[in-house]
Amino acid sequence: METKSIMIVGVGGQGSLLASRIIGNVLLEQGYDVKLSEVHGMSQRGGSVVTYVKYGDKVYSPVVQKGEADIIISFEQLEAARYVEFLKKGGHIVTSTQSIDPMPVITGAAVYPEDVIGKLRAKDIDVTAVDALTLAEQAGTAKASNVVLMGVVSKKMDFDRSVWEKALENCVPAKFLELNKKAFELGEQAAV
């Protein structure tokens, strides 16, 4: 099988590491060779962060480059716009509708573009946009928006639901499992 690439993008602190670990767990369970690449250190501090997930028969580079991603999962609209050039032709974007102003916008040095999702769709890209933050709050905490998005993504990937459930159990502390299962379910429902 040709190597497939997923990018998880967002703002430092939004929980992209957990998301990549859940997907990695699912892919490992399916018997693929898997590589994940993470960002640590300074860029974590509220900066734009990106995590790569690659899988297939044999994966070499852990990094995804422009024009290579099959799916981009974005925790924040502007980040979907920033990384859209990494998307392969015919690829999917799954994004939260959340928007967080970056510092140059806060200081007035730059403008946050309007209707980001509409403009991405106008490029003939399949964009699934969900209000992951509100759904996560419904599940019990804003912090679970990463898991809501995993629920959405599970509908874009062809793996059995039980594998996702098992991955959640492996990656989430037991005391938060029920809450995260709920968040995942809300994501699944929102994807339809």
């Binding site: 501090r45 734009s48 859209v84 970056p102 730059a110 573009p113």
Partner: peptide, 19 residues
Amino acid sequence: KATFEGFDEPVPPRPPAMC
């Protein structure tokens, strides 16, 4: 060379910031 298409407008940078 890779083929890809970017966003049509400037995307403001998001440098790291104090939490």
